[in-house]
Design a protein around this nucleic acid. Sequence first.
DNA 1: AACCAAGATGCAATCGATTGCATAAATAAA
DNA 2: TTTATTTATGCAATCGATTGCATCTTGGTT
Lengths: 342, 342
Amino acid sequence: MGNQSEITIHDIAKKLNISASTVSRALKDNPIISEATRKRIKKAAEEMGYRPNIMAANFRTKRTNTIGVIVPLINRHFFSSVISGIEEVAYDQGFTVTISQSNDNLEKEQKIAYTLFSNRVDGVILSIGMETKEIDHLQLFANRKVPMVFFDRIVEEIETHKIIVNDFEGAYKATQHLIEQGASRIAHIGGPLNLKIYENRQKGYCKALSDAGIEVDNSLIINGNLRRDDGYKATKKLVLAENRPDAIFCANDTTALSAIIFLQENGIKVPEEVAIVGFSNEPFSQVVTPTISTIRQPGFLIGKKAAELIIKQINSNKKSVVYETIVMPTELIIRESSKRKK
Amino acid sequence: MGNQSEITIHDIAKKLNISASTVSRALKDNPIISEATRKRIKKAAEEMGYRPNIMAANFRTKRTNTIGVIVPLINRHFFSSVISGIEEVAYDQGFTVTISQSNDNLEKEQKIAYTLFSNRVDGVILSIGMETKEIDHLQLFANRKVPMVFFDRIVEEIETHKIIVNDFEGAYKATQHLIEQGASRIAHIGGPLNLKIYENRQKGYCKALSDAGIEVDNSLIINGNLRRDDGYKATKKLVLAENRPDAIFCANDTTALSAIIFLQENGIKVPEEVAIVGFSNEPFSQVVTPTISTIRQPGFLIGKKAAELIIKQINSNKKSVVYETIVMPTELIIRESSKRKK
DNA sequence: AACCAAGATGCAATCGATTGCATAAATAAA
DNA sequence: TTTATTTATGCAATCGATTGCATCTTGGTT
């Protein structure tokens, strides 16, 4: 059993008294090798417990069949869904997926990018971190013609494939829904505006208001980092001000939840007095009390699509690629936190 | 900008009129190279935009600095936490992490294992799928002396590092806590007993009862698949029986939640009339109403520990490794669903 | 029988970084 | 100055699979 030394195609060749090139070709089902020898070779390979040294092959062919993925945090439902989608497609096509998380830290993102590049991944799928304003480390891939797909948090300046969620539409629908539920003073707890997604959510919110003839009141918009604490404080500020809002559209579910918590702690009824809609459909949003209305982002589908796009580009001999920007639709999920009895 | 052709150490060598070996050594900070030349070389490398071809280096040195991870499902909080922990440690030590999911499918798990092996990962960290009864594909690593760490769902027959959670202890503490809160008729909604982890949880529950002088009543134990539905039905059955239990220890948080939902729907107060403790500390358990008491499994720590173990083994010149089986402690988190006012 | 084409296999170079050993240069000791 | 010693650098082989080109078989055709 214990077989420690590497078995190479040369070992097989020697045993069968043929050349290594023939072995190589046979194992790759090259039709130029006769049926008979191919079978002999495969049989021998099997018996000898041969496992190809992919490192050697990669080195020679300059392909790794590896896709690098960079996300801010693996341990978050949206991103792990995307990864799951990527993995699903990539695996079927014979690709390996290497995953790294930037922790929303620019320095780490840069290191990861250089590492992936040095590892000669065939392509990169990524969503940038909150701090990412410099983009030299990403330009690297563009310059060297390494296929790249941005998703969700994209970099506009780099011309490549992009998959985004229709944040504008989602925010619009969320806000519109709040209006339909009878709200008229609708606040917004938003994210950092240097990220396009939060800008678009905010724009969708504003557009829905103005389409309904409601003037946008900047005192009702609070931007922050969308952590639990941010939502709590923002809600406090909104509620304690004179002329309290009767609804809040939050740019993620975390702040929606912390808003609800603050409101409940202060005896303000959700949704009767303040209706809430979040964003992202985090798993907890459907099990908390009240369940949180939110916008579903199709993470798994985004992942699949990203993998398909990048594999297509990897396999197309890199000439004249037409870059696509895919906008994924969103879906409004109405739950208790915004549904007012009529 | 557009720099398409590979820059190698030979290009640097040629430009500086020195040999490639000197360049290689200088870039690796080999002290045998003089300060002066090292600086010249590094400067030139920087200027020329040199990026080492790690494929070539890996091939030569037979190390990939890559750790392969196989989990049943990426998109689940426990596993993504573990991955996060692995990634954290591995990254700091200069390792790359490759992640694959088996989807609890034996065939896919086998394919992944062979792929990882062919890619010559330096080590493998894995939690097996539900279907995994054959283990040839895992023996492969053991035979070829590839470092391996099992976590959570381990294979007993393979002698290697293992990291498991102390399910017995966790269940014991949960049950004990319920007793301390004044409960005396404590039910258990358990998982399939062919999985070790659920067997141990049940054993811990029974031991805690008998240690407290409470006889185990089998009519209070219901085993199932621990889905939402299972918890709901089990609770119904328990509650509608004569002599209703005054507490339930659930083998996961999902059933704990559905138990709570059933109880609330039927006007039974949690925790006053029936106290509940779950298991796993799923993210939702701290945000639902009431918040759910549960047992924390240190996923992130398990990941870190697994990475540390495997890296240690990779770096130790593979002679005489002592395999460790680490049992991670659990922590009881007391929340509203079990805390009775005194 | 002579020639050709198609089919099957082998030869040898190649990818880029690493590394044991040899050598050259610089310094110290005699 | 000569020899030993240290320090710095170069030479060349190597890792295993791939692949363009050369070579050898074989059978078919005239």
